Computed example of a mutant assay.
Amino acid sequence: MANELVVIEKSTALEVFKSSDSVEDIIRKVEQEVNSFIPDVSTAKGRKEIASLAYKVAQSKTYLDGLGKDLVAELKEIPKLIDVNRRTVRERFDTLRDKVRQPLTEWEAEQERIEAEKQMLAWHEEALEMNEAFGKALAERIESDHEIALLMNEKFDRDLAEAKAEAERQRIAHEEELKKQAAEQARLAAEQKAQQEIEAAAQREREAKEAAERAEREKQEAIQRAEQSAKEAKEKAERDAKEAQERAEREKQLAIEAERKKSHEAEQARLAEEERKRQEDAKRQEDKEHRRKYNQETLQALVSNGFDEKLATEFIKLVASNQIPHMTMNY
């Protein structure tokens, strides 16, 4: 797979991104892979391996960053932490990518410098060819003039020799100037390339430093938010516990009052029942006394009319108990 440097099961991705230690473990494993790699820019295979490893590091960054992005979309509760780790992955893997590709980058810069030197050399050779053509034409002209000068006096011979020497000096001076210009242009191009690399490295270092400072700030902010959340959760828990205790106390008091009310109502019901029974007993006793009095008066009336007292008593009992038809006691 393209990102074989890093493989994470989707079911464990949340636990990985929730822990900075887990992310650090992944980065350290990739760093070990990168640090154990020996770059070789002297062969096409070696340069291809450098580019391949740098590509794998970049793909691993994209893979982890995309995995974290998916988690952020699914788990809204921890987006800040995942974003911090995503930034850490991006920045650290960018640094690793630049680190692993640096030999290839330097090699490419060297190749550009060599190409610039080759171009300068080509221009120089072209100038030499032009100079040679110029010298040849000059020599031909001088030779022609020499042939004419042979027909002239010694002064012309000296002038011709001086002119030839001056032309050679000019040719040599022109050739040296061309070499000097080519060397200066190559030197300036190499210095400019080196300065650009230095500035790029300094910029990467500044960006890495700023990223580290930003990550530290965000880490501290996350810690502060976590501490504030923990404080608020603790205060809420204390408030909830206090409210629960107060609610339990109120419910306890209500239960006590309810039990007290229930006991009072039970006592009132018992007293009412006792009063009802007392009244019923009193009523029964009163009725009994009333019947006894009526029975006694009836007995006296029967005895007064010549009835035997014992037979009269039995007669009254039979009437009172409704055992004699058509006769009742009217109390």
Rank of each mutant, 00 (worst) to 15 (best):
E4A: 05
V6Q: 00
V6C: 00
V7Q: 04
E9T: 01
K10F: 08
L14G: 00
S20F: 07
S20H: 12
S22F: 04
I26Y: 07
R28S: 11
E31S: 13
N35C: 05
I38C: 04
P39T: 11
K48A: 15
E49Y: 14
I50G: 04
A54Q: 12
Y55V: 06
S60H: 03
K61I: 12
Y63H: 07
G66L: 09
L67Y: 02
L67F: 06
L71G: 01
L71Y: 06
A73N: 05
K76A: 10
I78P: 01
K80E: 08
K80H: 05
L81I: 09
D83L: 09
T88I: 07
R92K: 11
R97D: 06
R97C: 05
R97M: 07
R97T: 09
D98W: 09
V100A: 07
P103M: 08
L104N: 08
T105N: 12
E106K: 15
E106G: 12
E112C: 12
I114E: 11
E117V: 10
Q119I: 11
A122C: 01
W123C: 01
E140V: 05
R141S: 10
I142Y: 00
E147W: 13
E147N: 13
E147V: 11
L150G: 11
M152S: 14
E154K: 13
D159S: 07
L160Y: 04
E162H: 02
A167H: 03
R169V: 03
R169F: 02
R171P: 01
E177R: 03
Q181M: 04
E184H: 12
E184C: 04
A186V: 14
A194D: 13
Q195Y: 07
E199F: 13
A200P: 10
A201S: 12
A202R: 15
Q203F: 14
E205F: 11
E207G: 00
K209C: 01
E210H: 11
E210Y: 08
E213I: 11
E213G: 07
E216F: 09
R217M: 14
E218A: 09
A226I: 07
E227S: 15
K234Q: 15
E235P: 06
K236N: 08
K236W: 04
E238Y: 04
D240T: 10
Q253P: 00
A255Q: 07
E257P: 00
K262S: 08
S263M: 11
H264L: 13
E265Y: 08
E265S: 03
A266T: 01
Q268F: 10
A269R: 15
R270G: 02
E274Q: 06
Q279F: 14
D281V: 03
A282F: 11
K283N: 12
Q285L: 04
E286S: 09
D287Q: 06
E289K: 04
H290Y: 05
R292V: 03
E297Y: 03
L299H: 01
Q300E: 14
A301H: 08
G306H: 02
G306N: 04
G306D: 01
F307Q: 02
E309D: 08
L311K: 10
A312I: 00
E314R: 03
L318Q: 12
A320L: 00
A320F: 02
A320C: 01
I324L: 14
N330W: 06
Y331I: 04
